[in-house]
Design a protein around this nucleic acid. Structure first.
Lengths: 87, 87
DNA sequence: CGGCATCGAGTCCGAAACGGTATTGGACCG
DNA sequence: CGGTCCAATACCGTTTCGGACTCGATGCCG
């Protein structure tokens, strides 16, 4: 698992749409789909239901999206703190 | 920045010794040194003082080690939760 | 003081991971 | 059905990563 995968997933979860999320993330759709799949494989849980046309978050996906956002926010906080650290 | 870099850094901070940390992480010393350097570059702050022989955490390094450990603990918690999620 | 061991940094190379283009498969709409 | 929209798959080039080897520097000990 990587922080990038969490960022990717959070955006896809917000958009509920892989192609739109890819545009927001400045990547193309296939790598994004692959990273989401890799995340699901590692967690052993599906994050989205595939519906032929589009995707929908599962219950676990909603939980995980909230946690992922919290983790990323924590990271951002620490990085920001490092920028204004008294050298 | 990646979760792996945070894991690497936490172990090096615990050991205050790159080579021992590398052994614990099952990697060799050069890649570990490089990841630590990359982390410092990204944060814009040194995490260790280099003393020709060995390394010592800076004040910022101690702060960052605590935060990194907290972030990794959060990740572990969420991953563990996914394992026992009611399918 | 000199030889030696220790430790992190630098160099180089092969392997794995990542992203992009092109294409496929499947579902909804007219 | 024909067209379109969307995610998944196949394939390829590039980048990144880790490992083996070496270098430079610093303590240690005879």
């Amino acid at each position: 698992m990587s922080l990038q995968q969490l960022q990717y997933f959070v955006v896809v979860a917000e958009e509920q749409h892989v192609t739109r999320a890819a545009a927001r993330l400045h990547v193309t759709q296939p790598p994004l789909s692959r990273q989401i799949q890799a995340l699901e494989d590692e967690l052993g849980q599906p994050l989205f239901e595939r519906r032929g046309r589009g995707i929908v978050l599962t219950a676990f996906g909603r939980y995980f999206a909230a946690e992922a956002a919290a983790i990323l926010a924590h990271v951002d906080t620490v990085v920001a703190a490092s920028k204004r650290w008294p050298s």
